[in-house]
Amino acid sequence: MKFNRRHFLKTTLILSTTGLGSLETRLASAEWSAVRFAESGFDQTLKQISNGKPIVESDKINLDIPEIAENGALVPFTVTSTLDDPIKTISIIVEQNPVPLIIQTQLMPELEIFMSARLKIANSSFVFAIAEGEKVCYSVKKKVKVTIGGCGG
């Protein structure tokens, strides 16, 4: 293929516009924030997650996690929900961890409210699943007992 000036301009234009597009989606999906994942206290993390919305306990959100975890480095969990309210994000917080916030997932309407992963727990602790709805955040907590910590070296 022969590269001339016209062709060069065309490709740069295409590249720059697609680049801008992806930049916008990145901004919309909120940049990874070091503040939220800092070694802050549990209450502060809760405040940052809830976005100023009230947090209500709900039995319509389910956190499936073992009550006793033999190995704190690998604790599988599943979050499901029967809420009608459209859920924007699901966050998992472990109260006693040095960094309480484990993960914050933005779910688009194309996905069912379902997510499963594996997390680390330092000490026996409450694990919170918080789903952010339109006006309120729904939360559920489960106590997990850890026999071997997940953060020991």
Partner: peptide, 19 residues
């Protein structure tokens, strides 16, 4: 994009996710 996960190091080694 259908899901964006922001995570800390609290996710286990060799992470697994299901949607």
């Amino acid at each position: 994009i259908i899901a964006t996960c922001d995570m800390g190091a609290g996710i286990s080694k060799d992470p697994y996710f299901a949607f």
